[in-house]
Amino acid sequence: MTDYKALEKQIQDQARQWLESGEVKYVIGFEKGDNSPVCRPVFIYKPEDAGKLAWGPLCNNNLTKYLVEEVQIKPKKGEEPDLRPVGIVVKPCDSKTIVELMKENIVPRERVKIIGVISEGTINPKALDKALKDVPLDKIAGIQILDGGDNFTIKYDGEPLSVPKDELLNGKCKVCVVHNPVVYDIFVGDKVTQIDKDEFEDIADLEAMSDEERYEYWKEQLSKCIRCYACRDTCPLCYCEECVFDRTKPYNWNEKTVDLPENFFYHMVRAMHLAGRCVDCGGCERVCPMDIPIRKLNRFLLKRAKERFKVVPGINVEDKAMFGDYDIDDPGEGIK
């Protein structure tokens, strides 16, 4: 059971200390929303603002996207770049992203100071809305959520609610096996005992389909896509200086048209570009306005990477890139 308040205090204290000493430029974290219990990203520059930092099961964003933007900013001409590290608050899944970003030479370790927080799962805001359907609207922003083991206890000035975790947790959290941050400067929370297996049960139904059935499934899902590129823009691993989908004629591989073939092309390429890299932080699916189950594609990638290439992304900085590695004794047919 996680004591969110205790973790929040530790986060605030650490951020305050770093900002006071000036060893970080600023701290990226979460703060309470104005009219919603859902937390939003915040950038804390001054030690006196550290008290704004919040922690709870509604800290959903993967903040490492901002880290990528920080390291990719080019200093203005004649300006000395401020290369001090940036502080960041991460959940275990976000910390896996940092491992990938370090592996790919995007974020140098010395440019970041990590407050790694344990996580036993975050709440899907849409599921929360459902659970709060009987709570008066003006009370919602003020609710307090406590970890009650198998349940979340939702307190507000009324009869407290007890909702089974299974009803509220994000899909990614239900299958997650990494509950402790893998890379951090400060470890916040008590180490969670981890189960070391992922059987990919959540995609078993898709796996069981015939090719034709699966094609029909994706046809239905991907025809919903409006190509807003939110999934790409929120992904910390989509850091290309120029995305292939932003190319203009005559250098473009696909057209901007929103139709099924172009949508398929976009989503397949996006998926392939993340193969062996995606750590299933779930950001893409969280931001999709059309409720496309993008994570299911990512989960396929994770499963194939694990089974066929023995690659589990986001664990070890020393691991080689799946598509960059070449084994002269590859057991695969025809490759030696």
């Binding site: 290309c240 200086e241 598509f323 960059g324």
Partner: peptide, 15 residues
């Protein structure tokens, strides 16, 4: 150069 993010995948892939 302008498009290169410096991820180094090409470095690893080059035989």
């Amino acid at each position: 150069e302008n498009n290169c993010a410096g991820c180094g995948l090409c470095v690893e892939a080059c035989p």
